[in-house]
């Protein structure tokens, strides 16, 4: 269990370093390190499906961040009073902590929940679906509605990105569209 806490502290340090760094390339690399450590955490708490998905998605996000955003000159917004901003941030953090403490008291203990539905999945999953990977049998058979919603979300996201960055929507009135120089 101690290695889990070491990795969690490493992730928090990586996130803080990411915020504080001025260089964009170094910030992207350190947020990538946070994602890699997160995939090791998933391996330690015995979730290999999530670990594979996390490391793969992290790589894709890393490449997209490197290629797509690094060359752009991102403005750093510091409008408004420093004192007011700090007080608002501290107030929201305090409200969040208060609500979180209230809410987490009602949750069942870690690793010792009621598990009524999960017990049925664990006992009858192999017989009912025939899939030896239990995660796969849950997300594609017992809980296939959720996967359908997730697929719809991804579809909507792709359509949204393509709609926003497409060429025709961006041309001005007297501009001629050139298709070949993308």
């Amino acid at each position: 269990m101690i290695e889990l806490y070491i990795l969690l502290v490493l992730m928090i340090v990586g996130a803080i370093v990411t915020i504080e760094l001025k260089d964009l390339l170094a910030a992207v690399i350190s947020i990538g390190a946070v994602g890699m450590v997160l995939s090791i955490v998933f391996l330690i708490i015995k979730a290999p499906d999530l670990a594979i998905t996390q490391i793969v998605v992290e790589m894709l996000c890393f490449i997209i961040l490197l290629r797509a955003t690094l060359k752009k000159d991102l403005p750093f917004s510091t409008t408004g009073s420093w004192l007011f901003n700090t007080f608002v941030a501290a107030g929201f953090i305090a409200i969040f902590l208060f609500v979180a403490v209230k809410a987490f008291k009602d949750l069942p203990e870690f690793g010792y929940p009621i598990m009524r539905v999960a017990n049925i999945y664990l006992k009858e999953g192999l017989v009912k679906t025939g899939a030896s990977n239990l995660v796969s049998s849950i997300i594609l058979d017992f809980r296939a509605y959720d996967t359908l919603g997730e697929a719809t979300i991804l579809f909507t996201a792709v359509i949204g990105v393509l709609t926003i960055v497409r060429r025709i929507g961006r041309k001005k009135k007297d501009e001629i569209v050139e298709e070949d120089d993308e």
Partner: peptide, 17 residues
């Protein structure tokens, strides 16, 4: 995906990668 860890999402991202 139904035998070992992985599945459609992770495999699809690897194909895209």
């Amino acid at each position: 995906g139904h035998i070992s860890p992985g599945g459609g999402f992770a495999g699809g991202v690897i194909i895209a990668l």
